[in-house]
Each structure stands twice: as C-alpha cells, then as structure tokens.
Simulated scan of single mutants.
Amino acid sequence: MSQALTQDAGGDDDEELGLPALPSGARNYMSPAGYARLRAELFSLIDDERPKVVEIVHWAASNGDRSENGDYLYGKKRLREIDRRIRFLTKRLEIAEVVDPTVHHGSDQVYFGATVSYVEDSGTERTVTILGIDEADSLLGQVTWVSPIARTLLKSREGDELKLVTPAGVLNIEVLRVTYPTQA
C-alpha cells in the first residue's frame, strides 16, 4: 500500500491542524463576512495555489530522481497541506449557518455578531465582538460565541451586571454598550 494512502486514512483534519473543534452537536455560526472570507480562501486554493504547486511538482518529477529532488519533495508536502486545508474549509462551509448580525441593529440585547463594551470591578473597560469559531481574531478584540465571556454576555442587555467565571476566580462585570453593524 502506498505511504500516501496510509497517512491520510484516519486523522480528523481539525485535530491535525490544531484548529478549534466545534462543540459536539453545536452549529457552526458564522457572519456573512466570515463566510465570504473562508469561501474566498477555498476558491483561491483550488483555482490559484493548487494548480501552481501541481505544475511545479510535475516539472520536478520530470527531472528524474525524486528521492533527492527538493522541489519535488517540498511540492508534494505543500500539496498535502493545501489538500488538507481544502477539505477542512469544505467541511466547515458545508455546515456553516450564516447569521446576519445587522438584523439586531438598534437592539440593546446581546446576540451573535454584537460588539459589547463592558467594565470589570477593577474599572477596566473592554470591548469584544462575538463571532464564529472560524473567524474570530483575538488580536482584533473578537471572541468566539462559545468562549466563556461570550457565553456570559449572550442574551444580556445594556446595564446588566453579570458574573464571569475565569480561572483566576469570579469577576463581576457590567454591560455598558451593545452595538451591531448597520446594513450596507
């Protein structure tokens, strides 16, 4: 049996890539912008990047001895990485449930897609945007809808005082503002 067939046979793509797994039975909520971004990445891999790598591998294979051919070995490795990412994106997009946060514009209650400002007991004010698992970027103040802070904030309203359970203990927080993007 070929080595390629035995390597790919078992593992789950999520675990191999170290990406966040969806909670069992949970939906894969995603904003329209997040869905479009993942879809664009998928088509870019399929239409642009993969064909270029296949061409390089084909050229390198025609040069002869593949065991010491760096272009061939690297190209095959990169091709596996691209194929793994394509499978991952395809699976995630198939089960995605696109939720448009603009429908809640003007509401003071926290739902998926909300940008929430809250203050901790210490006086520290923080702002987070609640997004999907595949699109949230913590460096931009975005959190996944399954994170502890998002789960605490969901369904609350401006002015609500909540208890956030953290590894360091329980924090008291107060919701200051809830905003949603406007329709384009």
Results as ranks from 00 to 15, higher is better:
1 M>C: 11
1 M>W: 14
5 L>F: 09
7 Q>F: 00
7 Q>P: 10
10 G>W: 11
12 D>Y: 06
12 D>F: 03
13 D>Y: 05
13 D>Q: 14
16 E>D: 06
16 E>K: 07
16 E>A: 10
17 L>Y: 00
17 L>V: 03
18 G>M: 03
18 G>T: 14
18 G>F: 10
20 P>E: 09
21 A>P: 00
25 G>D: 08
25 G>L: 11
27 R>Q: 15
28 N>C: 08
28 N>M: 09
29 Y>H: 12
32 P>T: 01
32 P>R: 02
34 G>S: 09
35 Y>M: 05
35 Y>Q: 09
38 L>W: 02
40 A>S: 15
42 L>Y: 05
42 L>S: 01
43 F>W: 15
47 D>S: 08
48 D>S: 15
53 V>L: 13
54 V>T: 09
56 I>M: 10
59 W>D: 13
60 A>Y: 03
61 A>E: 14
62 S>K: 13
62 S>R: 14
64 G>R: 05
64 G>A: 08
64 G>K: 05
66 R>S: 04
67 S>M: 07
67 S>T: 05
70 G>I: 05
72 Y>N: 06
72 Y>I: 03
77 K>H: 14
79 L>M: 13
80 R>D: 08
83 D>Y: 09
87 R>I: 04
91 K>W: 00
94 E>A: 15
96 A>I: 00
99 V>S: 00
101 P>R: 00
105 H>S: 11
106 G>N: 08
108 D>F: 00
109 Q>V: 01
112 F>M: 06
112 F>S: 03
113 G>F: 03
114 A>Q: 08
114 A>N: 10
117 S>Q: 12
119 V>F: 03
121 D>Y: 02
123 G>R: 07
124 T>S: 10
132 G>L: 04
133 I>T: 15
135 E>R: 06
136 A>L: 05
136 A>H: 12
139 L>S: 08
139 L>T: 04
140 L>M: 12
141 G>F: 12
141 G>Q: 09
142 Q>C: 09
142 Q>N: 08
142 Q>E: 15
146 V>A: 04
146 V>M: 06
147 S>H: 08
147 S>E: 13
148 P>M: 00
148 P>V: 01
149 I>S: 07
155 K>C: 01
157 R>F: 10
157 R>W: 06
159 G>H: 08
164 L>I: 05
167 P>Q: 03
167 P>K: 08
170 V>H: 15
172 N>Q: 13
172 N>S: 13
173 I>C: 05
174 E>N: 08
174 E>R: 15
175 V>C: 04
176 L>P: 00
176 L>T: 15
177 R>L: 05
180 Y>P: 01
180 Y>K: 02
182 T>L: 13
184 A>F: 10
184 A>Y: 09
184 A>C: 02
